[in-house]
């Protein structure tokens, strides 16, 4: 098995101001599927091609933002191993009992140096991706809206950027895939736990613990354009796009959920292997790095977080 340790982003728990508006957005407009609810009022969602029970948890709240993001590790042994390594790095950990989130095993929970909460877990109930495992069809029928394929990554704004990147690379074994640098100062770090262009990204910022966006994969550039149609048809607040990123090469569009959490849907980004070189964008070229066509930075994209 090539995958060991931290396998993939497992879920993101987002705070929402109105659960019904949030469900219209994530299910009817983006195509996620509701799989459960709990007695705290949280609603569990997954994208059609995900096997585990949920990848998004919507938490009713009086504020927006990310409660936590969780990574799935390959084995229970990995969970204990990373608990030790996080502690050895000097970050406190706690254990969240199995079942605190419906269908999710025991979690190791900690606040990373940039102020964001992350959890690790090894087990989650698997309910399948709506197509058979024998003679599988290419896609299931009846998926709504943008037809998001999977929850892919988050981009986070936090303080103590250098320590955050050191924590993720040294304690959690993620690789630096791509970066933006201003001289010898790193402004942005795109980190990967496997073959993807990124599984999480961090931007140097003055406030701790902010969400820039939660991102979902689509199948093609045509699907990104179709998402743009839906954004206008459904009066969803658009931020930027459709366009291409220089960073990761992805075709992309950004918009906001009804609580002000930014979402991205994207397609056709790059990939990497453990021996791939780190890709670097210089600050002089940051416009092209972010929006490859216009090369112009957009104030709201740079400065709005939840």
């Amino acid at each position: 098995m090539a995958f060991t340790g931290i396998m993939r982003p497992g879920h993101v728990q987002l705070r929402v101001l109105d659960i019904d508006e949030a469900l219209t957005h994530y299910c009817d407009n983006m195509g996620l599927i509701e799989t459960d609810r709990d007695d705290q009022g949280r609603v569990y969602l997954k994208c059609w091609d995900e096997i585990d029970k949920f990848s998004v948890v919507l938490e009713p709240s009086d504020r927006a933002g990310m409660d936590h993001m969780a990574f799935k590790v390959a084995t229970e042994q990995d969970l204990s191993r990373f608990e030790s390594r996080v502690k050895d790095f000097g970050v406190e950990t706690s254990r969240v009992p199995a079942g605190e989130l419906n269908g999710c095993g025991e979690r190791i929970s900690f606040i990373a140096p940039g102020g964001h909460r992350f959890d690790l877990y090894a087990q989650k109930e698997q309910i399948g991706n709506s197509i058979p495992t024998t003679n599988p069809s290419p896609w299931p029928e009846g998926i709504k809206g943008m037809k998001a394929i999977r929850f892919d990554h988050c981009l986070l704004y936090g303080n103590d950027h250098d320590e955050t990147v050191r924590f993720f690379t040294e304690a959690l074994d993620l690789d630096l895939a791509e970066q933006v640098v201003d001289g010898d100062v790193q402004i942005a770090a795109f980190l990967s736990c496997g073959y993807k262009a990124h599984d999480i990204a961090f931007i140097r910022h003055e406030e701790p613990g902010k969400l820039h966006h939660a991102s979902f994969l689509l199948g093609s550039w045509e699907q990104v354009l179709r998402a743009a149609d839906i954004i206008s048809m459904k009066d969803i607040p658009l931020d930027v796009g459709p366009t291409r990123h220089g960073l990761t090469r992805g075709m992309t569009i950004y918009y906001y959920d009804p609580s002000g959490n930014r979402n991205e849907v994207f397609a056709e980004d790059s990939y990497r292997y453990p021996d791939s070189p780190v890709l670097t964008w210089e600050a002089d070229n940051v416009g092209q790095a972010i929006f490859y066509h216009s090369r112009v930075l957009v104030d709201s994209f740079m400065g709005v977080v939840s």
């Binding site: 101001l17 504020r63 927006a64 933002g65 607040p237 906001y256 959920d257 009804p258 609580s259 002000g260 959490n261 930014r262 709201s300 400065g303 709005v304 977080v305 939840s306």
Partner: peptide, 11 residues
């Protein structure tokens, strides 16, 4: 200033 237009970002 225009931000998220959904009551979440505060700008």
């Amino acid at each position: 200033p225009v931000g998220c237009r959904s009551g979440g970002c505060g700008v």
